[in-house]
Protein backbone atom coordinates (compact mmCIF):
# COMPACT_ATOMS: atom_id res chain seq x y z
CA UNK A 1 0.00 0.00 0.00
CA UNK A 2 1.14 3.49 -0.72
CA UNK A 3 2.58 5.35 2.26
CA UNK A 4 0.49 8.36 1.32
CA UNK A 5 -2.70 6.34 1.70
CA UNK A 6 -1.53 4.92 5.03
CA UNK A 7 -0.84 8.42 6.28
CA UNK A 8 -4.27 9.51 5.06
CA UNK A 9 -6.00 6.58 6.79
CA UNK A 10 -4.07 7.14 9.99
CA UNK A 11 -4.93 10.82 10.01
CA UNK A 12 -8.60 10.03 9.44
CA UNK A 13 -8.54 7.51 12.31
CA UNK A 14 -6.91 9.98 14.70
CA UNK A 15 -9.30 12.76 13.66
CA UNK A 16 -12.24 10.50 14.31
CA UNK A 17 -10.83 9.49 17.71
CA UNK A 18 -10.44 13.13 18.65
CA UNK A 19 -13.74 14.27 17.19
CA UNK A 20 -15.72 11.65 19.09
CA UNK A 21 -13.51 12.15 22.12
CA UNK A 22 -16.24 11.77 24.71
CA UNK A 23 -17.65 8.56 23.26
CA UNK A 24 -14.16 7.15 22.92
CA UNK A 25 -13.20 8.16 26.44
CA UNK A 26 -16.20 6.33 27.87
CA UNK A 27 -15.57 3.30 25.68
CA UNK A 28 -11.89 3.37 26.50
CA UNK A 29 -12.60 3.54 30.23
CA UNK A 30 -14.90 0.54 30.06
CA UNK A 31 -12.39 -1.39 28.00
CA UNK A 32 -9.55 -0.58 30.37
CA UNK A 33 -11.62 -1.81 33.32
CA UNK A 34 -12.45 -5.03 31.46
CA UNK A 35 -8.84 -5.63 30.54
CA UNK A 36 -7.78 -4.77 34.09
CA UNK A 37 -10.07 -7.40 35.53
CA UNK A 38 -8.61 -9.92 33.15
CA UNK A 39 -5.09 -8.70 33.85
CA UNK A 40 -5.64 -8.96 37.61
CA UNK A 41 -6.66 -12.55 37.12
CA UNK A 42 -3.54 -13.15 35.13
CA UNK A 43 -1.45 -11.52 37.85
CA UNK A 44 -3.18 -13.61 40.51
CA UNK A 45 -2.66 -16.74 38.49
CA UNK A 46 0.99 -16.08 37.76
CA UNK A 47 1.75 -15.38 41.42
CA UNK A 48 -0.28 -18.28 42.79
CA UNK A 49 1.43 -20.68 40.47
CA UNK A 50 4.81 -19.22 41.33
CA UNK A 51 4.14 -19.66 45.04
CA UNK A 52 2.80 -23.14 44.68
CA UNK A 53 5.73 -24.19 42.59
CA UNK A 54 8.07 -22.33 44.92
CA UNK A 55 6.83 -24.30 47.92
CA UNK A 56 7.26 -27.48 46.00
CA UNK A 57 10.84 -26.48 45.31
CA UNK A 58 13.69 -28.16 47.23
CA UNK A 59 11.31 -30.77 48.30
CA UNK A 60 12.62 -33.44 50.62
CA UNK A 61 11.53 -37.01 50.23
CA UNK A 62 11.96 -40.02 52.43
CA UNK A 63 12.57 -43.23 50.52
CA UNK A 64 11.92 -46.18 52.82
CA UNK A 65 13.81 -49.36 52.06
CA UNK A 66 12.76 -52.93 52.60
CA UNK A 67 14.46 -54.88 55.36
CA UNK A 68 17.41 -57.12 54.58
CA UNK A 69 18.55 -55.22 51.49
CA UNK A 70 22.12 -55.99 50.50
CA UNK A 71 24.68 -53.29 49.89
CA UNK A 72 24.54 -53.73 46.12
CA UNK A 73 20.82 -53.08 45.87
CA UNK A 74 21.12 -50.12 48.20
CA UNK A 75 23.83 -48.66 45.97
CA UNK A 76 21.68 -49.27 42.89
CA UNK A 77 18.79 -47.32 44.40
CA UNK A 78 21.12 -44.48 45.39
CA UNK A 79 22.57 -44.33 41.90
CA UNK A 80 19.11 -44.19 40.38
CA UNK A 81 18.14 -41.30 42.61
CA UNK A 82 21.37 -39.39 41.92
CA UNK A 83 20.68 -39.80 38.22
CA UNK A 84 17.37 -37.95 38.43
CA UNK A 85 17.35 -34.31 37.34
CA UNK A 86 17.89 -32.07 40.34
CA UNK A 87 17.86 -34.92 42.84
CA UNK A 88 20.59 -35.58 45.40
CA UNK A 89 20.89 -37.89 48.36
CA UNK A 90 21.05 -35.93 51.58
CA UNK A 91 21.77 -38.89 53.77
CA UNK A 92 21.30 -42.57 54.31
CA UNK A 93 19.59 -43.46 57.56
CA UNK A 94 20.16 -47.03 58.61
CA UNK A 95 17.70 -48.94 60.76
CA UNK A 96 19.96 -48.36 63.74
CA UNK A 97 20.22 -44.64 63.16
CA UNK A 98 16.47 -44.44 62.73
CA UNK A 99 16.03 -46.11 66.09
CA UNK A 100 18.54 -43.74 67.68
CA UNK A 101 16.64 -40.79 66.29
CA UNK A 102 13.45 -42.18 67.71
CA UNK A 103 15.09 -42.79 71.03
CA UNK A 104 16.36 -39.25 71.13
CA UNK A 105 12.92 -37.96 70.19
CA UNK A 106 11.27 -39.97 72.95
CA UNK A 107 13.77 -38.71 75.51
CA UNK A 108 12.83 -39.86 79.01
CA UNK A 109 10.35 -42.37 77.81
CA UNK A 110 12.86 -44.07 75.54
CA UNK A 111 12.76 -47.08 77.81
CA UNK A 112 9.55 -48.00 76.02
CA UNK A 113 11.76 -49.14 73.18
CA UNK A 114 13.66 -51.59 75.41
CA UNK A 115 10.78 -54.01 75.24
CA UNK A 116 11.11 -54.38 71.48
CA UNK A 117 12.53 -57.70 70.42
CA UNK A 118 13.65 -56.34 67.06
CA UNK A 119 14.02 -52.97 65.35
CA UNK A 120 10.72 -52.20 63.55
CA UNK A 121 12.01 -49.11 61.77
CA UNK A 122 12.97 -49.26 58.12
CA UNK A 123 16.18 -47.85 56.72
CA UNK A 124 15.60 -44.81 54.58
CA UNK A 125 17.27 -42.44 52.17
CA UNK A 126 16.61 -38.70 52.53
CA UNK A 127 16.43 -37.13 49.11
CA UNK A 128 16.43 -33.45 48.18
CA UNK A 129 14.93 -32.49 44.86
CA UNK A 130 15.99 -29.10 43.61
CA UNK A 131 13.89 -28.03 40.73
CA UNK A 132 15.69 -25.71 38.44
CA UNK A 133 12.66 -25.40 36.28
CA UNK A 134 9.70 -25.81 38.63
CA UNK A 135 7.13 -25.69 35.87
CA UNK A 136 8.70 -28.62 34.09
CA UNK A 137 9.56 -31.03 36.87
CA UNK A 138 6.74 -33.19 38.06
CA UNK A 139 7.39 -34.42 41.61
CA UNK A 140 4.55 -36.91 41.46
CA UNK A 141 6.22 -38.68 38.55
CA UNK A 142 9.56 -38.80 40.36
CA UNK A 143 7.92 -40.30 43.43
CA UNK A 144 6.23 -42.91 41.32
CA UNK A 145 9.48 -43.80 39.60
CA UNK A 146 11.37 -44.25 42.86
CA UNK A 147 8.57 -46.19 44.50
CA UNK A 148 8.62 -48.67 41.64
CA UNK A 149 12.28 -49.52 42.23
CA UNK A 150 12.96 -52.99 43.65
CA UNK A 151 13.83 -52.79 47.34
CA UNK A 152 11.84 -49.58 47.95
CA UNK A 153 8.86 -50.08 50.22
CA UNK A 154 7.47 -46.57 50.33
CA UNK A 155 8.16 -42.97 49.36
CA UNK A 156 6.80 -40.06 51.34
CA UNK A 157 6.72 -36.40 50.66
CA UNK A 158 4.39 -33.66 51.58
CA UNK A 159 2.63 -33.53 48.26
CA UNK A 160 -0.93 -33.39 49.37
CA UNK A 161 -1.18 -29.70 50.09
CA UNK A 162 0.83 -28.91 46.97
CA UNK A 163 -1.74 -30.84 45.02
CA UNK A 164 -4.55 -29.06 46.75
CA UNK A 165 -3.06 -25.77 45.68
CA UNK A 166 -2.65 -27.07 42.18
CA UNK A 167 -6.37 -27.73 42.13
CA UNK A 168 -7.08 -24.24 43.32
CA UNK A 169 -4.78 -23.02 40.60
CA UNK A 170 -6.75 -24.98 38.03
CA UNK A 171 -9.95 -23.34 39.25
CA UNK A 172 -8.31 -19.92 39.02
CA UNK A 173 -7.11 -20.72 35.52
CA UNK A 174 -10.52 -21.92 34.41
CA UNK A 175 -12.28 -18.93 35.96
CA UNK A 176 -9.73 -16.74 34.24
CA UNK A 177 -10.52 -18.29 30.89
CA UNK A 178 -14.27 -17.90 31.36
CA UNK A 179 -14.00 -14.35 32.63
CA UNK A 180 -11.46 -13.58 29.92
CA UNK A 181 -13.86 -14.87 27.28
CA UNK A 182 -16.77 -12.88 28.65
CA UNK A 183 -14.70 -9.74 29.00
CA UNK A 184 -13.34 -10.24 25.48
CA UNK A 185 -16.90 -10.39 24.16
CA UNK A 186 -17.67 -7.29 26.22
CA UNK A 187 -14.71 -5.42 24.79
CA UNK A 188 -15.76 -6.32 21.25
CA UNK A 189 -19.25 -5.09 22.03
CA UNK A 190 -17.91 -1.78 23.34
CA UNK A 191 -15.66 -1.21 20.33
CA UNK A 192 -18.48 -2.15 17.97
CA UNK A 193 -20.72 0.45 19.53
CA UNK A 194 -18.11 3.16 19.73
CA UNK A 195 -17.20 2.70 16.09
CA UNK A 196 -20.86 2.50 15.14
CA UNK A 197 -21.52 5.84 16.80
CA UNK A 198 -18.59 7.26 14.84
CA UNK A 199 -20.02 5.77 11.66
CA UNK A 200 -23.42 7.32 12.26
CA UNK A 201 -21.84 10.65 13.09
CA UNK A 202 -20.03 10.54 9.77
CA UNK A 203 -22.81 9.05 7.69
CA UNK A 204 -22.97 12.09 5.40
CA UNK A 205 -19.26 12.04 4.87
CA UNK A 206 -19.30 8.34 4.02
CA UNK A 207 -22.17 8.86 1.59
CA UNK A 208 -20.27 11.63 -0.16
CA UNK A 209 -17.05 9.61 -0.21
CA UNK A 210 -18.94 6.83 -1.93
CA UNK A 211 -20.52 9.29 -4.37
CA UNK A 212 -17.16 10.65 -5.48
CA UNK A 213 -15.81 7.16 -6.09
CA UNK A 214 -14.18 5.97 -2.85
CA UNK A 215 -13.93 2.21 -2.61
CA UNK A 216 -15.43 0.47 0.38
CA UNK A 217 -11.98 -0.22 1.79
CA UNK A 218 -10.99 3.40 1.45
CA UNK A 219 -13.89 4.24 3.73
CA UNK A 220 -13.47 1.26 6.03
CA UNK A 221 -9.75 1.23 6.74
CA UNK A 222 -9.71 4.41 8.89
CA UNK A 223 -12.45 2.90 11.04
CA UNK A 224 -10.57 -0.38 11.37
CA UNK A 225 -7.48 1.59 12.37
CA UNK A 226 -9.57 3.49 14.86
CA UNK A 227 -10.67 0.21 16.41
CA UNK A 228 -7.11 -1.08 16.59
CA UNK A 229 -5.91 2.19 18.10
CA UNK A 230 -8.66 2.07 20.68
CA UNK A 231 -7.69 -1.50 21.53
CA UNK A 232 -3.99 -0.72 21.73
CA UNK A 233 -4.60 2.33 23.86
CA UNK A 234 -6.79 0.46 26.32
CA UNK A 235 -4.37 -2.47 26.39
CA UNK A 236 -1.52 -0.12 27.13
CA UNK A 237 -3.45 1.69 29.86
CA UNK A 238 -4.57 -1.58 31.43
CA UNK A 239 -0.98 -2.83 31.53
CA UNK A 240 0.22 0.44 33.00
CA UNK A 241 -2.44 0.49 35.71
CA UNK A 242 -1.83 -3.17 36.44
CA UNK A 243 1.87 -2.44 36.84
CA UNK A 244 1.21 0.43 39.24
CA UNK A 245 -1.13 -1.83 41.21
CA UNK A 246 1.57 -4.47 41.30
CA UNK A 247 4.14 -1.98 42.56
CA UNK A 248 1.81 -0.96 45.37
CA UNK A 249 1.16 -4.58 46.34
CA UNK A 250 4.81 -5.53 46.08
CA UNK A 251 5.84 -2.64 48.30
CA UNK A 252 3.74 -3.98 51.16
CA UNK A 253 4.86 -6.98 53.17
CA UNK A 254 2.12 -9.43 52.66
CA UNK A 255 1.78 -12.49 54.84
CA UNK A 256 0.00 -15.52 53.64
CA UNK A 257 -1.37 -17.99 56.21
CA UNK A 258 0.86 -16.13 58.65
CA UNK A 259 3.84 -17.98 57.23
CA UNK A 260 6.23 -16.12 55.01
CA UNK A 261 6.37 -12.71 53.44
CA UNK A 262 5.14 -13.29 49.98
CA UNK A 263 7.18 -12.25 47.05
CA UNK A 264 5.10 -10.70 44.27
CA UNK A 265 6.05 -10.95 40.63
CA UNK A 266 4.55 -8.97 37.76
CA UNK A 267 3.03 -10.82 34.83
CA UNK A 268 5.82 -11.84 32.45
CA UNK A 269 6.62 -9.40 29.69
CA UNK A 270 5.20 -11.65 27.01
CA UNK A 271 1.89 -11.86 28.90
CA UNK A 272 1.75 -8.06 28.92
CA UNK A 273 2.40 -8.13 25.19
CA UNK A 274 -0.37 -10.68 24.82
CA UNK A 275 -2.79 -8.35 26.63
CA UNK A 276 -1.77 -5.59 24.23
CA UNK A 277 -2.08 -7.78 21.15
CA UNK A 278 -5.38 -9.28 22.26
CA UNK A 279 -6.87 -5.86 22.93
CA UNK A 280 -5.74 -4.66 19.50
CA UNK A 281 -7.29 -7.72 17.86
CA UNK A 282 -10.50 -7.29 19.85
CA UNK A 283 -10.57 -3.66 18.66
CA UNK A 284 -10.14 -4.80 15.09
CA UNK A 285 -12.90 -7.40 15.41
CA UNK A 286 -15.19 -4.86 17.04
CA UNK A 287 -14.76 -2.29 14.31
CA UNK A 288 -15.08 -5.01 11.68
CA UNK A 289 -18.45 -6.02 13.08
CA UNK A 290 -19.58 -2.38 13.21
CA UNK A 291 -18.56 -1.85 9.59
CA UNK A 292 -20.18 -5.06 8.41
CA UNK A 293 -23.49 -4.08 9.93
CA UNK A 294 -23.20 -0.53 8.67
CA UNK A 295 -22.33 -1.38 5.09
CA UNK A 296 -25.16 -3.86 4.88
CA UNK A 297 -27.69 -1.18 5.71
Amino acid sequence: MKIRLLVYFFRQAIQSLVRNGMVHAVGLGTMVVSLLIFGSFLLLFVNLSDWVEGWGENLTMSVYLEDGLDEKMKQAIMRHIQGLEGASVKEYISKERALEHLRAALGERSDLLESLSRNPLPASIEVIIRRHNPRRTDPAAIVKGIAALPGVSDVQYSEEWVNRFRNILEVVRLTGFIIGGLLGAGVIFIVTNTIKLGLYARQDEIEILKLVGATDWFVKIPFLMEGILQGLLSGFLANAILFVGYLILAARKTFFLGVAPIHFTFIPFDYALVILAVSAILGLIGSFIALGRFFNL
Partner: peptide
Protein backbone atom coordinates in the same frame (compact mmCIF):
# COMPACT_ATOMS: atom_id res chain seq x y z
CA UNK B 1 -19.89 -4.91 -9.01
CA UNK B 2 -19.48 -2.54 -6.11
CA UNK B 3 -15.79 -1.94 -6.81
CA UNK B 4 -16.38 -1.46 -10.53
CA UNK B 5 -19.03 1.14 -9.79
CA UNK B 6 -16.65 2.92 -7.39
CA UNK B 7 -14.02 3.06 -10.11
CA UNK B 8 -16.57 4.24 -12.68
CA UNK B 9 -17.60 7.07 -10.38
CA UNK B 10 -14.07 8.40 -10.39
CA UNK B 11 -14.67 9.19 -14.04
CA UNK B 12 -18.20 10.54 -13.64
CA UNK B 13 -18.84 13.95 -12.11
CA UNK B 14 -22.20 14.62 -10.49
CA UNK B 15 -23.48 18.01 -9.43
CA UNK B 16 -26.16 17.29 -6.85
CA UNK B 17 -29.24 19.39 -6.58
CA UNK B 18 -28.67 19.62 -2.83
CA UNK B 19 -24.88 20.09 -3.30
CA UNK B 20 -23.91 17.41 -0.77
CA UNK B 21 -21.03 19.38 0.66
CA UNK B 22 -19.44 18.49 3.97
CA UNK B 23 -19.96 21.34 6.44
CA UNK B 24 -17.01 20.22 8.55
Amino acid sequence: RRLQLDLLRRKVGFVFQDFKLLPS
